[in-house]
C-alpha cells in the first residue's frame, strides 16, 4: 500500500465533508439571497422538528380571551376561540410541511421514473409517455387536484400527498427526459457502454449525479406548489385534517369564525387571519430564494477551482 493510498483512506471522510457539506454551505453563504432562503427554511425545519416539544399546545376554548392582541403570553394573539395562534402554527407546521415534503418525494419519484424511462427506452414507450406528460402539462394541476380532493374523501396526510403529486410531475419529467436524451448522446455515456459498465451503473452512477441539481431545485418548487394546493384544498373545506394545519387555520379564519368581518370592529382579528398566510408566504419565499442558489451549489462545473 502506497502512502498516497493510505492518505486517501485516512482523509476520505474529511474530504467528503469538505466537498458535500462545507463547500455547498460556503457557496450558499456567499450568495446573499440563497443564504436568506436557507436561513428561513432552516428556521422552519427547526420549528417543525423541535417546535412541538418546546411549545405546548392548548386546544381549550377560552371565549373570554378571543382575538387577543400580540403579547408575551400570546406571541401572535389568539383565535376566535381564544386559542394561542402561535401554538397552532408551530404544531401545524409538522403536518403542513410534512405533507408538502411527502408530495415532493412522490412527485419527484414519478417524474424521474417517467422521464428516465421515456428518455432511456425511446420509441413507442417514449411517445406514449410524452403524450401523457403533455396532457399533464397542458391541463393545469389545481383543478385536477381539486377534482380528486372532492371525489375522494381524504382524511390522512399520505393520500392527500398522493393526490397532490398525481398531476404535478409534468415539467420535471419532461426536463429529466430531455436531460437523459442529451446525455445518452454524450460521449461519456457511450464510453461507459463500451467499457462494459452495467446499465444500472450507467443510470445511477453516471446519469443521476448529472441530473441531481435539476431534481433538487425542482423539488423545492414542487414542494411550494404542493403547499399552495394543499392549502387551497383545505381552504375550500375539501380535506378535513387537523385544525392546526395552516390550511385549516386559513379556512377557519376566513369562513367559519367570521374573523374577516369581525376585523372591521376588532383589528386584532386581522392578526389571526394574517398568521397562517404569513407563515405560508414566508416559507415559500425561503424556498424561492434557496432554489436560486442551489443551481450553483450542485453543479461542480460552476464551482471555483
Amino acid at each position: 500500500m502506497t502512502t498516497t493510498a493510505k492518505a486517501v483512506r485516512r482523509h476520505g471522510w474529511r474530504r467528503w465533508l469538505q466537498r458535500n457539506i462545507v463547500e455547498p454551505f460556503l457557496i450558499i453563504y456567499r450568495n446573499r439571497r440563497a443564504f436568506i432562503g436557507f436561513l428561513i427554511l432552516l428556521f422552519f425545519v427547526l420549528i417543525t422538528i423541535f417546535g412541538p416539544m418546546v411549545v405546548p399546545l392548548e386546544l381549550r376554548t377560552d371565549y373570554a380571551n378571543r382575538f387577543a392582541p400580540i403579547s408575551l403570553d400570546h406571541l401572535l394573539g389568539t383565535d376566535y376561540q381564544g386559542r394561542d395562534t402561535f401554538q397552532l402554527l408551530v404544531h401545524g407546521s409538522r403536518e403542513t410541511l410534512g405533507i408538502a415534503f411527502l408530495a415532493g418525494i412522490f412527485t419527484t419519484l414519478i417524474a424521474v421514473v417517467v422521464g428516465m424511462t421515456a428518455g432511456l427506452f425511446g420509441g413507442w414507450v417514449d411517445r406514449i409517455l410524452m403524450v401523457l406528460t403533455n396532457a399533464v402539462l397542458t391541463v393545469p394541476y389545481l383543478p385536477v387536484q381539486l377534482l380528486l380532493g372532492a371525489t375522494f374523501t381524504l382524511r390522512d396526510p399520505i393520500s392527500l400527498a398522493l393526490v397532490l403529486s398525481i398531476w404535478a410531475w409534468g415539467s420535471l419529467a419532461r426536463a429529466v427526459r430531455s436531460q437523459v436524451l442529451s446525455m445518452k448522446e454524450r460521449e461519456f455515456i457511450e464510453a461507459a457502454r463500451v467499457l462494459g459498465l452495467s446499465t444500472t451503473h450507467i443510470i445511477f452512477s453516471e446519469m443521476m449525479p448529472n441530473i441531481m441539481p435539476f431534481i433538487a431545485i425542482n423539488f423545492l418548487t414542487i414542494m411550494r406548489n404542493a403547499i399552495t394546493a394543499s392549502v387551497a384544498l383545505m381552504f375550500l373545506g375539501l380535506v378535513p385534517l387537523d385544525p392546526t394545519n395552516w390550511g385549516m387555520m386559513l379556512n377557519d379564519a376566513t369562513s367559519r369564525s367570521g374573523a374577516v368581518q369581525i376585523s372591521v370592529f376588532n383589528r386584532n382579528a386581522l392578526i389571526y387571519v394574517a398568521a397562517p398566510m404569513g407563515a405560508i408566504v414566508l416559507f415559500q419565499l425561503g424556498a424561492v430564494f434557496l432554489a436560486h442558489g442551489l443551481d450553483e451549489v450542485l453543479d461542480p462545473r460552476l464551482r471555483g477551482e
Binding site: 411550494r224 399552495t228 392549502v231 387551497a232 381552504f235 376566513t254 374577516v260 368581518q261 376585523s263 372591521v264 386581522l270 387571519v273 398566510m277 405560508i280 408566504v281 415559500q284 419565499l285 424556498a287 424561492v288 430564494f289
Partner: peptide
Amino acid sequence: AAFTGATPDYVTALVLLIVFAVN
C-alpha cells in the same frame, strides 16, 4: 417576482378583499 411567486393567488385575493372591501 419572488414575492408573487411565493404568494398563492388566493392569498393575494384574500388580502385585497380584507383590506379594500371589508375594512
